[in-house]
Design a protein around this nucleic acid. Structure first.
Lengths: 145, 145
DNA sequence: GGCGCTAACTTAGCAAGCTAACTTAGCCAG
DNA sequence: CTGGCTAAGTTAGCTTGCTAAGTTAGCGCC
């Protein structure tokens, strides 16, 4: 097996995630996973654990544990949904908002710098990646998952 | 935050890995991680744990544990390197070879089908991904990490 | 020939993903 | 109005990443 696409994607992403995690822990005292969760709640409006799991691409138990930790750390507010159902309403605490705001732009700039350095056209690569994700989601849904 | 590149890469890869893992477990009784390790030993000639860790993009302790499990399962042969040093010589057992051979082509075909379905040009995307990986590796090495 | 150096590997413990199975809440059909 | 269904969330236990720290083997220099 030469180093094919699936392996390269796997390794590239693993390294990006690990680097992101190292930087965030060292400079901001938070893991990459938790940062992503807070960001999605704050800026994409992930308002229930189910929705957040979909946005992150992980399962409900994973989110369940993480929201517990984030709530205990005082970054996330988790409340029963007043509209009823068994849902939780997620929102950032003031401390959570402060954290996310202080990190986001600087962090994204660092990734863009790597892409620029590589000579890969950012917009095109981003669009291809987005398209693969959309297609893969659709195929999985059609397959009944 | 819109769904930017780093998040899309993270989620796309997580889903590909999970799908690969599900398929391999259900149809072949092996995890994706272990399949990758066996494949790299068998076909790229990863002959020590250090080399295998580099190919996989993970750390030595992770490989150390995995080679132990694979050896216990009778798929991998782990021996002290007769050439001396503290190295281990890795090689597939007959059972390990049989396993890898029966899986590889069918599995790669499935991924190629997803890419084709999405309309993303495979060769170009693969090349961009490879280039990003190379650049990122270089930047990390230069940074002293 | 022993001291320190480096490289490869192991051990221990933590983080965060997963699946399986369970609980809780609302909804609807008889 | 109850018994079953579905959706959301939780709990338990496994896998496989990680870092930090320790071990083992050869190598070089005095």
């Amino acid at each position: 097996m030469e180093r094919n696409l699936s392996l390269n994607l796997h390794v590239l992403t693993a390294r990006l995630d690990r680097a992101a995690d190292r930087i965030l822990r060292a400079e901001h005292g938070i893991s990459y996973s938790r940062f992503l969760a807070l960001t999605l709640v704050g800026e994409l409006g992930a308002s229930t654990q189910r929705t957040l799991a979909d946005y992150l691409g992980v399962t409900e138990p994973s989110v369940s544990r993480m929201t517990g930790v984030l709530a205990a750390d005082g970054l996330l507010d988790v409340q029963p949904d007043p509209a009823g159902g068994n849902r939780r309403r997620l929102s950032l605490t003031d401390e959570g908002k402060r954290r996310v705001a202080s990190i986001r732009q600087e962090f994204e700039d660092r990734l863009a710098a790597v892409v620029a350095e590589s000579g890969v056209p950012y917009a095109e690569y981003a669009e291809h990646t987005a398209r693969l994700l959309t297609t893969f989601d659709r195929l999985e849904r059609e397959a009944g998952k």
